[in-house]
Amino acid sequence: MQQSQPLKKTINPKPMTEGVKKQLLFRLLLVALLSLLATGLGYAVLSLPSSAPGLSELVAENLETSGVSNPVTAVLLNFRAYDTLLELGVLLLALLGVWSFGAVPERRESFPGPVLDTLSRLLVPLLILVAGYLLWVGAHAPGGAFQAGSVLGAAGVLLLLAGWRPGARFVGLPLRITLVAGLGVFVIVSAVLILVGGRLLEYPPSFAATLILLIEAAATLSIGITLAALFIGGRPEAGPNN
């Protein structure tokens, strides 16, 4: 923050009056255009009818066959499960993108301090418990794989902040298998369903609850580990010698 101020001045050695005038004109034009955009969007929003059922009735009608009683989980894992499937793919792709920039930068060696150390020891088991609870309760109340996965990811971030690093034994194949578990289980389930029933991700109602829980458990694990891995900001190296 301190450095950016003098830096900026050296970047713009142009005659100031001309530049400032153009800058001001540009800003005014921008504000005018954006006000126009905001007015248009606001008008579009206000011109919508004040009552629209949307798809809520359709969801409510089919909720019994979905295997869960929380409508949001039913939409995420059953009615529009392909959204979630692709979204797990996006998460994995983002991690691949981050990893492609190289290994973890090895310069943060700060000592966490006793408070953070104790706090992480107390909180991480609790966060894992909360993640499990959210995963289980998602079938019939607010919660589900994404919430549980992000709590798990928060636990991982806390551990990383407290100075913990994944050991060499975990970094190789086990880490990669955990990362793709969510997407993998999802793809396997949908492939099996296509072979059995002929339709993509159309669960038989008697198995729906089990299949959803299976997919959600794998997705939770993958989302949590992926978020923690994104926090590391690079590919963890396999061994201490390279």
């Binding site: 450095q3 930068p105 310069r107 943060r108 994404f146 992000s150 928060a154 971030v157 978020l227 900001g233």
Partner: peptide, 30 residues
Amino acid sequence: PDVALAEAAIGAGLTGALLLAALARLESNN
């Protein structure tokens, strides 16, 4: 409430941690 849970965990917690870590790296690079 489902979105609220996701936002509280991700939008407030994890995004903040990611941004602060990136800022720390930015400044240590500087």
